[in-house]
Simulated scan of single mutants.
Amino acid sequence: MKLHLTHAFLIATLLLACSSKDPDTQEVPEIPKGGIKSSDAFPALKFNLPVELVQAPGDSSRFYLIEQEGTIRTFENARTVASSPVFLDIKNKVTSGGERGLLGLAFHPDYKTNGFFFVNYTSGNPLKTTIARYKANPATHQADPASETVLFTFNQPYSNHNGGSMQFGKDGFLYIATGDGGSGGDPQNNAQNLKSYLGKILRVDVNGTSKGNYGIPADNPFATNTEGNLPEIYAYGLRNPWRISFDMANTRLFAGDVGQNEREEIDIITKGGNYGWRLKEGVDCYNPASNCNAAGLIEPIHDYTQNNGDRSITGGYVYRGKAIPALAGKYIYGDYVSGRIWALEMNGDTKKENVLLMENQGSISSFGQDVNGEVYFLNYSDGKVMKLVNGN
């Protein structure tokens, strides 16, 4: 994910992305023109640098939206809604700009009764990521900024590739996506280092206390290891997973992993899985540039080249709504740079077809899904919340 880019940095990124390889065939025949459209879901609302949209468990009546600089706003789920009060303001704690900021939000499965929710943000000098719990009054939709309980922190060696997405699984555990620590090419090889939090999917028990303010699920891959590997690690070998999500119909965990200079990828995350970075970028060798040892590495279910102007994947959601039957069971995702949105259809855990739904949708910073399975996305550049709707 490439946020808040300067023109110079964007131009440099585009030049680096050039490849001599032929474009792949990610754009199969489109759904007929007008079949799927985007609609301004809340015409009276506009947000500052929006990066996440969620609903609390079991509550379809309102949304919560992260603004990158350190605020969470809440608003009613009504097209006519005219205001978005602040739910939480922690700008005094957050270091933002570029790919830094308040980046993730997840509500406790029992939020209605305990008021707990969790955030992921960058702060400090030296820079670090903080995973913290806050408490709110679910009845008044107001969080207490003084209620922070830090679960854990870890250092960020560079300002980019912070990941940030968090999701609760049906197992009740919190899954946390982390980037490789930044710069380019993972110079510290963090993603393959099992003693680093970086370049991983972490899984923790927010109701446990074995690690102080959280616990380690007993079946985590390194929960009982004696080699110093981090027990929080669930999967590894990721570059910058920008948005993870669970399929509402099952336990499949999807990740959109932003590429380096050539390929963007989508992964289905499994316990203990190694997704290859920095050995591989998508299906290609990266370091070493050829003859990389792919033994034990999990291939993406889909990847695409950057040759067509698609240079920063934004992971999405499996559509489980009722408004657009043609999208049922398809994984909806987009690209931040090109503004394209696709629907990925699968046979089980393998790719069947990838269909381009729409183009020119702005800087897609995040997708969102309501409790009824409908899918939304955020336009980072104009601050709008858009919804996928049936165009027929």
Rank of each mutant, 00 (worst) to 15 (best):
Lys91Leu: 03
Ala139Arg: 11
Asn137Cys: 04
Asn137Lys: 10
Phe107Arg: 00
Asp144Trp: 07
Arg100Ser: 13
His141Asp: 14
Phe116Lys: 14
Tyr111Ser: 00
Phe107Lys: 02
Asn114Trp: 06
Leu102Met: 10
Thr129Phe: 01
Asn125Asp: 15
Ala139Ile: 13
Lys128Thr: 12
Asp144Cys: 06
Phe118Thr: 04
Lys112Cys: 01
Gly124Ala: 11
Thr129Ser: 14
Arg133Asp: 09
Ser123Trp: 13
Gln142Ala: 14
Asn114Lys: 04
Ile90Tyr: 06
Lys112His: 11
Phe118Ala: 04
Arg133Gln: 15
Gly101Arg: 02
Gly101Tyr: 07
Pro138Gln: 02
Leu102Val: 09
Gly101Pro: 05
Lys128Ala: 14
Lys93Asp: 14
Gly104His: 05
Leu103Ser: 02
Asp144Thr: 03
Pro109Asn: 10
Leu105Ala: 08
Leu102Pro: 09
Asp144Lys: 08
Arg100Lys: 15
Ser96Gln: 08
Ser123Asn: 13
Val119Arg: 01
Leu127Ile: 14
Lys128Leu: 12
Phe107Val: 00
Lys91Asp: 05
Thr95Tyr: 11
Arg133Gly: 09
Thr129His: 00
Leu127Asn: 11
Val119Met: 06
Leu105Asn: 07
Gly124Leu: 07
Thr113Tyr: 08
Val119Leu: 12
Lys135Tyr: 05
Asp89Tyr: 09
Phe117Gly: 01
Leu105Gln: 09
Pro109Val: 10
Gly101Lys: 04
Glu99Met: 03
Gly98Ile: 03
Gly104Glu: 05
Asn137Gly: 02
Pro109Asp: 11
Val94Pro: 07
Asn125Cys: 00
Phe117Asp: 02
Asp110Tyr: 10
Phe118Met: 04
Asn92Leu: 11
Asn92Asp: 15
His141Lys: 13
Asn137Asp: 15
Asn114Ile: 01
Arg100Asn: 12
Phe116Arg: 15
Gly124Phe: 08
Phe117Pro: 01
Phe116Ser: 14
Gly97Thr: 08
Lys135Arg: 15
Val94Thr: 12
Asn120Ala: 02
Arg100Gly: 07
Ile131Ala: 02
Gln142Met: 13
Arg100Cys: 10
Asn120Arg: 00
Gly97Ile: 10
Ile90Asn: 02
Tyr111Asn: 00
Pro138Leu: 03
Asn125Phe: 12
Phe117Glu: 04
Lys135Leu: 11
Arg100Ala: 11
Gly101Trp: 03
Val119Asp: 06
Thr129Met: 12
Arg133Glu: 15
Thr130His: 10
